[in-house]
């Protein structure tokens, strides 16, 4: 198993939206490498013809009828907002799709 590089850790941090400090990048590179080295054992079963289990219960088709339930009041919905304006969540400028 190839080691996890600092660059890979930086890439993961971007995907996970974590502004990791330099020391953390090094620290995690070592630790993730250790942990992944240990858990990679699961791939021993990769070749086996075994169906995956994503869920412990064999349930299917759990649905609810299309009936309106009361929503929160806008005040309650916004009660935890770090910032709000015009009954909306106020967030910093979005660098996005435009």
């Amino acid at each position: 198993m190839p080691g996890i590089t600092r660059e890979e850790v930086a890439h993961l941090a971007r995907l996970a939206r974590l502004e990791l400090q330099d020391e953390e990048l090094d620290h995690f590179a070592t630790q993730l490498d250790d942990i992944i080295g240990a858990v990679a054992r699961v791939s021993e079963v990769a070749e086996q013809d075994v169906p995956p289990t994503s869920h412990p219960l064999p349930l299917t088709n759990v649905m609810r009828p299309d009936v309106v339930r009361p929503s929160l009041t806008p005040q309650a919905a916004l009660s935890g907002a770090p910032a709000q304006e015009q009954q909306r969540f106020k967030v910093p400028q979005i660098l996005g799709e435009d």
Binding site: I4, L15, L32, S43, V45, A46, V50, P52, T53
Partner: peptide, 26 residues
């Protein structure tokens, strides 16, 4: 969070998450 992001990321999913789900069956 970093470990999980790694295990689900493209190219690793089958070896890690996928295999772990098989272990779960076993």
């Amino acid at each position: 969070v970093m470990l999980g992001t790694y295990a689900l990321s493209s190219g690793y999913y089958d070896a890690y998450y996928g295999s772990a789900q098989k272990v779960r069956t076993l």
